[in-house]
Write a protein that binds this DNA or RNA. Sequence first.
DNA 1: ATTTTATACGTGACAAGTCATATTAATTTT
DNA 2: AAAATTAATATGACTTGTCACGTATAAAAT
Lengths: 169, 169
Amino acid sequence: MSKSAISKAERIKARRAREEVNIFARMPAAYAASRSQAAKFLQRAGGLSVVEWRVLWDLSEAGPLSIREMASIQRVDHSQLSRALPGMRRKGFVTMERDEADGRQMNVALTEAGRAAYDKTAPIMKKRREGLRRAFSAEELEQFAGFFDRLEEFLRQPVEDLLAEEKTP
Amino acid sequence: MSKSAISKAERIKARRAREEVNIFARMPAAYAASRSQAAKFLQRAGGLSVVEWRVLWDLSEAGPLSIREMASIQRVDHSQLSRALPGMRRKGFVTMERDEADGRQMNVALTEAGRAAYDKTAPIMKKRREGLRRAFSAEELEQFAGFFDRLEEFLRQPVEDLLAEEKTP
DNA sequence: ATTTTATACGTGACAAGTCATATTAATTTT
DNA sequence: AAAATTAATATGACTTGTCACGTATAAAAT
């Protein structure tokens, strides 16, 4: 009954196959799945949000930090932290104080409750990373990270430059 | 004047270095950069949103599709398309009709205006993919995609299973 | 034939990310 | 010292993504 020589199912399959090797198309899905898995682990571990977990982890590993410093470590926009931190202070996880030497900066530090939340969550999240290391060898993870480095470098190139470049000969 | 043996700058550097090889931590940043670059290309090309572009591309390559089929190709939740499509219909890019054979499905098809928007945007987005192919060889892209396959497989594992597994011996 | 179950879509509520802009404080120029 | 620039944070507006749940239709089981 199909009007076209190629069936709809085949067209979909072909389209899906092409998208499979399109890195740009793969990233949103992989990222979404990762975030979703992280949320599930965090739910198990006590109910922190992803942003909260990252903050506690950074503060716990690197000591008191300013918002900018955390944003740089996490490679996210500072606004995300600006928004999340007041809630974390309300929950008693962190203290925020204006820096004495530089009145623009906020010093964000872990409280005892914050440390406790970290200690409760960390072993579960460690299991997650261990799981990943069963799925990928150390060399592969390094290679994967290297791909991300190069991808980010490409993504940072100004759009004009990319549009101007000649087609590869 | 520092109270600790290790300076704050060094602590931050160490923390950053650890996060650099943490795939989970790299993904949000890489994805955000990719989305941002895509948005810039699309801005140049006429102002489509990322979701709109993906819809036009799919319809143009695979013909009329249901919402579910598009969601499957794009690996996104159907709700995203459910929400975006009425706007695209309003703009005249697509038509949406309930399927005659199966009253649950919507048939989404490209209009002439939709085809025109696609034709205008596609060459610019092609340049983007060409740029990526200058940054990565075909083999590398394949390997990169393969890593995504395995990562997604890992991310799909039930959380219970991962928490139950023994530490690698 | 009826009842149960599965599927497709729509929608509300939310998380996580962006960018642009305002505000205040620090630093550099003049 | 005053003016201009730069930097850190806060906040509004927006996009992309989720999940959960309701509704209607279709398919399967009894």
